[in-house]
Amino acid sequence: MMIIFAIIQAFLVILVAPFLIGWVRLCKARLQGRHGASPLLPYYTFLTLMKKEIVFSTNASWVFRTVPFVVLGTTVFAAAVLPLLTLEGISPLSHFVLISGILALGSVFLVLGGLDSGSAFGGMGASREMTIAALVEPAFFVTLAGFGLGSGTAMVSLMIGNGVVGWVVHPGLALSLAALVLVSLAENARYPVDNPATHLELTMVHEAMILEYSGPYLALLELASWTKLTVFVLLIGSFLLPSTYLLAGVDYTLVGLGMAVGALVVKLIVLGGALALLETSIAKMRFFRMQEYLAYAFVLGVAGLIITLIV
């Protein structure tokens, strides 16, 4: 039963991911005074890309071809086991060390894909992404460790299940939550770490790595990054207000499921709007100031952890 729900959840998250990204783009456009495209545009983008021809760099090896599958695969894994829709996810697999390892595996393959074409752009993006990924790893660890300590478990699903509203019981977790937001922005290549909207800016990270990908492979990589954003947004939502789907997750009936899906969509709309507002109101940081940003995330996480440990 757990497995079936995990599969349903993974499909649902993948299905709503293009909508979230379209919604964020629409909100950003409106906030910036543009009209903006329909939030359904990413669906069309995905379908168009799936039909297109693939152009490979003559330098590319087999690694280039495996990258999209592994990157999307690790994201699907996270989308299946984390408690996004149902309360439990696959709880034994949602151990926080495992999750951060799996996500790191995805980043590693993305970086390898960036290097494989042999262009300077890809290498630059790869080097930067790897730096961020290597430094985000401890921040992510301490953040989830904070929540784990608050609820006395190592499984992300139980972290949400045990402490009804974790940060109300353990105020220190508010800091962890802030750290989680910073980590999510870095992991998903959003402002102020990366600019998701441009292809031709010297500050870019994620887009530089996937520059050489085209057609269905690009579609899969885009889908992977959208899904990852959705996973993180929902995770933040669950830590912020777990009660919303505590309500829905009580029983695995059709009504319960419907309510859970409704809660999920509401969360996406609210948090997507918040993300757009955040991205409109702050500027991108210089890459060589990234250590400060990541240090904020890390210190916030450690503070949350230690306060939770002491109190």
């Binding site: 152009v55 760099s57 003559t58 999307l72 890809g122 269905p216 899969l220």
Partner: peptide, 18 residues
């Protein structure tokens, strides 16, 4: 997803973006 959805034969090699 890739095998079933997209046309596997539609690919060609070319030098990277220069």
């Amino acid at each position: 997803l890739r095998r079933l959805w997209s046309d596997v034969r539609r690919e060609r090699a070319y030098h990277q973006w220069d």
